[in-house]
Design a protein around this nucleic acid. Structure first.
Lengths: 206, 206, 206, 206
DNA sequence: AGCTAATCGAGACGGTACGTCGTGTCTTTTC
DNA sequence: GAAAAGACACGACGTACCGTCTCGATTAGCT
């Protein structure tokens, strides 16, 4: 373990960066169709060997590249109320799914189910961070007595996540800019339904 | 219009079937990677011409093939109560997403967003039938006074659809058989949350 | 037999010609090192498939291409005397080995021995036509009583062929043009030795 | 000059041997195709640097390796008669060409002509030792008055060398063992022809 | 019956990407 | 400073598909 890591020339860390940059550019330009290892290597000014040394499949490369660029939940959320927290999380999710990089991450993760565990799966990349955040939020809500402690947090999380995702899916492409401009309006109905569903007190504010 | 339709040899309707069958077989065997027009034609014992004459892209072919095999909602639902209807729809959705063909349809539809409108989109194939069904169900619920008429049906539909989808996404592959065996148990928590969220009366039955 | 030959689109005979032309050009430009299937296809304006459909190895392709261009013995030789015939054959051989295409054919054929019979072998391409010609010449010589009928034709052929080959091998590259200009001078000593060796009458002319 | 020779680590003389051994093994196993610097270094347990430090091309490496193993004429020949000497030399040549290492040396030397003078050429490695030996033999023959002093030694050498080479070329692979077992039989006809050709007295022995 | 036209199996064709391998050079650590 | 290890840009390898195209062989309605 200790010996084989330091032998020989070390991998140039700059190459990693150049490849990821090229991968994102290439993907943005051509979409998934037309996204090729060959093209990425070409654009990065890198040999194919250097590429395959680090990523063995297109999917892995694209996933890693996209992850480096965006993440479903960037930081901790704590607004002081359950409603505020849920709105904040839902807003971040909405923005994530409306962003091409985020959407693609989701897409590839869903695809990955068909190929088994060799691909970074949905849970690790997207669902788990959300679930963890959701846990924290609802536990704080229970502690504040905003919501009964009988609530099934997992179901609440699934509904929140799924509701936002479906909302984005149902949006026509030309509605995307509007949704990004006023995320709160798109998110509120779902949040209201969810909070009512778990028996939480909701503010009167629209 | 009148001349070009009837002249010449007519298309063999059996070929359509053979191709679709081969496409599903091929997809099941190799997954999306390794799914090729060439391979389908080979397996169907058909020339590539016959294939391209009917479908111009892989995606189209696979979508049509999968549609021919399964559909999110097979028939009308009317159990007499809103709760019963929602449970029935949710169950069908759960089964649809747990079925490889259904899952793949979803996957491709999601993929299709990246390619623009040339691919049959999610709405037409999956979302719209569900939305229509949801409309009917909730309108009957309003008529029966089970639910207030201020409810946003679209949000309810999105939450139902999304909740079930996320639930399936969160399931580990080895939990799939159990979920297919007892769909009601997996669906109930989501349905309860949803109905409470829209302010419906819910039966006391677990 | 009769059916499978006519199915499908027929191979374009012009492609064969374009490839062979490109192969010779490429070989002349870069030599054996740097002679690549990829390069030939590129220069011929042809897909690699079309190339591999016809030739499965570089060696085969180059051999066929060179054969199309040159042959050790272009036509029948019959000067009326054994000595004249032998000189004529030896001259043709000398020119063949001094020509890059001929030399390469020899080279590849010799190489081919190491790979076994899958490569067109030396005998079929070079040795056999020469042996056949040699047979004819000496038989005519015996009929004319120029040479005793006890002579071993095979040994004579080997000696003639080998003598000329060795002479070319021993020539420095800068002597090649001179040898091409006055082949007779280079060939005569070998022919004299050979004819004396088989007990033939030789003219007094130098 | 004096400083750089003794500074630093001295070259390990064993490495040279390991590389040569590995090169021959590798060549024997895979033939020229598939003979790679990389493979030799791997098999010798040596870095590529150590290899390129000593040989700059594959051809050089292989030639040197083969030379280290076999040589066309191992020692001086002096049987007391021209005929005996020529038979001895021809026999050694026959064995050399029938040996894979010898044959390969010839093959590469012929190949080398195409690459220009940077490769050790045929003359230096094979032809010159033979020519030198031939000179000696025939000069002794002239001194013994076995052969007229008008003979062209160079032509005689070329014919002997070429005759044996062609004989080996013409042999089918399955005849090789027989030729190795009784070289004299294969060599005699050529020697007889050659000696008669140069006007030498030949013994009556078959 | 003959004509015309579309359909079909087959497969050639110019391309492009695949993933692997070898080249010769360069960098790093160890001896 | 030599050596092993191995990263690196490059480019060929032979295979597989892509989508288009030519072929001969059906197969039918229209004259």
């Amino acid at each position: 373990m200790s010996e084989s890591e330091t032998r020989g020339r070390r991998r140039d860390p700059d190459i990693e960066r150049r490849i990821i940059r090229a991968a994102i550019d290439e993907y943005a330009r051509t979409g998934w169709a037309g996204f090729s290892m060959e093209g990425v290597a070409r654009k990065a000014g890198v040999g194919k060997a250097a590429l395959y040394l680090r990523w063995s499949t297109k999917e892995q490369l694209l996933l890693d590249s996209l992850d480096a660029q965006s993440s479903p939940l960037t930081e901790d959320v704590d607004t002081g109320s359950l409603e505020g927290d849920v709105i904040a999380v839902a807003t971040e999710l909405l923005q994530y799914f409306l962003d091409p990089a985020g959407w693609t991450s989701l897409r590839i993760s869903i695809d990955a189910r068909a190929f088994g565990p060799q691909l970074g799966n949905l849970n690790a990349r997207i669902a788990e961070p959300i679930a963890a955040m959701s846990d924290t939020i609802f536990q704080r809500g229970i502690a504040r007595a905003e919501v009964p402690d009988t609530v099934c947090i997992r179901t609440a999380t699934e509904t929140l996540f799924g509701g936002v995702l479906m909302h984005v899916l149902a949006l026509a492409p030309d509605e995307h800019p509007a949704a990004l401009a006023r995320p709160r309006e798109h998110v509120l109905p779902i949040v209201k339904l969810l909070l009512a569903g778990v028996g939480a007190q909701v503010s009167a504010t629209p």
